[in-house]
Design a protein around this nucleic acid. Structure first.
Length: 261
DNA sequence: ATGGTTGATGGTCAA
């Protein structure tokens, strides 16, 4: 079962970017972030034409997440628990049953800039809620993936120029510590597992500005976290870096894992 | 040091 995450940066503006990648990469399940549209405006037809079921948790203008799956999506849950007043659409969960059931959580973690400030406070509070949900999911003792745009640069080697990020919410000690706390609860970072000794990179995001792609001025902020039972099924991982060089790219590229499930 | 880009929206905000 090939499962991917892709921050599409506006699914209506980039539906052809999405469908051409789907046709080529042939993932079984995809979580999308920053769809930037309400449920009823999601371009569902081209997705259905490619054989995908679709569950959307949209929002007008900003944020918005979705899950696509060639297999049925079961037990869909929208929103990150822990704050009834949170109206931002950043989290969706569903179960996909292949050879065995895999629980999949797609997330768009708050950016948190500027910091310090209320947006950064929201980010850190959101991360504590995510940790609480992650512990519940871990305790299911089943294959679970929590994947998406985490908006956290875990370590200096996850940025081409880490010194440029020292004042950014994505690289604050508090943001990095909050991600480490989740990992230390028993989750595995799939990309880092396969490239443990890399001194720089790989990256998943390159800004549109200032020729960042051309200079390979990237960061790694899109992550796939695996529960122990999911990690046991890991066959392969990848970053579809070439997508960034194509026409009308997102500023993020897809990240995927293949599980024996 | 500043500005550089993009989407959704319809003036700016978010990233």
């Amino acid at each position: 079962m090939k499962i991917a995450t892709f921050n599409i940066n506006g699914v209506r503006a980039r539906i052809e970017t999405l469908t051409s990648w789907l046709s080529e990469a042939q993932p079984d399940v995809v979580v999308l972030q920053e769809i930037k549209t309400q449920d009823e405006s999601f371009p569902a037809e081209p997705i259905a034409d490619l054989g995908y079921n679709l569950e959307v948790h949209g929002q007008k203008s900003f944020n918005g997440v979705a899950i696509l799956s060639k297999l049925p999506l079961e037990d869909v849950r929208r929103g990150l628990p822990g704050d009834e007043s949170d109206e931002q659409s950043r989290y969706i969960e569903a179960t996909v049953v292949g050879q065995q059931a895999v629980r999949i959580a797609g997330l768009y973690l708050p950016n948190g800039n500027p910091q310090p400030g209320p947006k950064f406070d929201y980010k850190l509070a959101w991360m504590e809620r995510l940790r609480a949900r992650a512990r519940e999911l871990r305790d299911l003792e089943m294959p679970v993936l929590m994947l998406g745009d985490y908006n956290v640069i875990p370590e200096p080697r996850d940025a081409a120029f880490p010194e440029k990020w020292v004042d950014d919410a994505l690289f604050q000690p508090e943001s990095r510590a909050a991600l480490r706390r989740i990992l230390n609860d028993g989750w595995t970072d799939a990309i880092r597992l396969r490239e443990p000794d890399s001194k720089r990179g790989p990256f998943t995001f390159w800004d549109y500005q200032a020729g960042a792609w051309h200079k390979d001025n990237g960061i790694r902020i899109d992550h796939v976290l695996m529960s122990p039972q999911a990690a046991d099924l890991l066959i392969d991982v990848g970053i579809d870096r070439d997508e960034r060089a194509k026409d009308k790219p997102s500023d993020h590229v897809p990240v995927w894992v293949d599980l024996d499930a």
